[in-house]
Design a binder for these strands. Structure first.
Lengths: 217, 217
DNA sequence: TCAGGGTTGAAACGTTCGTTTTAAGCGCAG
DNA sequence: CTGCGCTTAAAACGAACGTTTCAACCCTGA
């Protein structure tokens, strides 16, 4: 029969593994550190997951199944697409800047995005695909219908690329380039505002630079 | 006295180390594989560089001192900033897509950008800083003078972010999202064109979507 | 109470890693 | 030729890794 503490150990291992994998990467992370942080024995990894690699896959899955992202947003009928785009960008930046949720989860996912493993395909299909489709739908509202879908996908990548630049692991470079103080000023609100307005301006929806009487979103 | 073959072994180690580090990352790369690929003994690493970490630092330095990037471009007086921006973006994409030069050099640098090590600070100061300043100067020509420098830096990050998205290590995700065939169509020319036009449109220089009589760069 | 399966703990296993040691090879000055 | 730095080769070292073993433990059902 299943012991009550089993699921606890399993869950603690998943959380600890996510943190350690996020901090150090797959190779550099050690099962001893994971188990130490989880308060479990090293044998627990092999008992519960078989080996280190399957623990990693499960940790990635756990990371974005344990509430890292709010349910896909739904907007009331008639919401202007500019507003939807802003919400989307803000949501993505929230995950990246980990302003709201445990840092390691977002970082683990970003790490997986950057250095894909076997866990990548599953994550793309289960998580990214959905977000990507939402962004595509928003852009379809913002762009002329005669623009080919392939070009729309390029625009989507431009939006995502702008957001992904602020990944935590880019931080040292950003700080070196603009200084720590200014880099700190690039917070969620400011980046949301900038990327949204930059994108809307590129799509011809509104000018990037404020002008008297200019429309805002 | 210095043996003539010494510099050869050193150089072969640096090249092999660059390739292996680029493929596997610092932790996963082994000095045995590096030495095997370089046709050298494992002791050569410690003899020439002291240890694995200093070999890595030297390999990163070697990677962008051995002609990965053309000398900083200079434009004739009166070159329109739109043209400069296009050249800059194309140059950056060239390095990223490694269409022209040895793949591993660009990848090693990108890897360093993503997971900074001790070699990062030096590389930022010696390499990225220069590129970044050039981009800033171009943007200064393209933007109204009253825009604060801090906002100009955000625009620069938007440009760089769009380019960095097409890093080789994003490729699996891109292929899963849009299909291999279409992803293959995102080549140097098309991406240069898209990112340049997207950015210029955002800056209010020209519309993103072709219109009759619209100006092109 | 007792037997038995699920779970944990401590220790050890075999492997691979980075590094070191030791000796031989090489080219040249004396 | 001889001796001496510089460089390379082969082998081994100690440490750390992932993994396995096995006995003890705990909980539950009979």
């Amino acid at each position: 029969m299943k012991n009550a503490s089993t699921d606890d150990t399993r869950r603690r291992l998943l959380e600890a593994a996510g943190q350690v994998f996020a901090e150090r990467g797959f190779q550099a992370a050690t099962v001893r550190e994971i188990c130490g942080r989880a308060g479990a024995n090293v044998a627990a990894v092999n008992y519960h997951f078989g080996d280190k690699e399957r623990l990693y896959i499960e940790a990635v899955r756990y990371a974005h199944c344990s509430g890292i992202d709010a349910p896909d947003p739904t907007w009331p009928e008639g919401t202007p697409p500019e507003r939807k785009l802003r919400d989307f960008i803000r949501g993505m930046l929230e995950n990246i800047l980990h302003d709201t949720r445990p840092a390691w989860q977002a970082q683990l996912i970003v790490r997986e995005l950057i250095e894909p493993s076997q866990a990548c395909v599953e994550m793309v299909e289960n998580y990214i695909r959905g977000k990507y489709d939402i962004l595509q739908a928003i852009l379809a509202e913002l762009m002329p219908p005669e623009v080919p879908p392939s070009d729309r996908r390029l625009v989507a990548f431009s939006v995502v690329g702008q957001c992904l630049y602020y990944t935590k692991i880019h931080k040292p470079i950003g700080e070196l380039l603009v200084g720590e103080d200014e880099y700190r000023s690039f917070d969620l609100d400011r980046l949301t505002d900038h990327i949204t307005r930059f994108t809307l301006a590129a799509l011809g929806r509104q000018p990037l630079f404020a002008r008297p009487g200019g429309a805002r979103v």
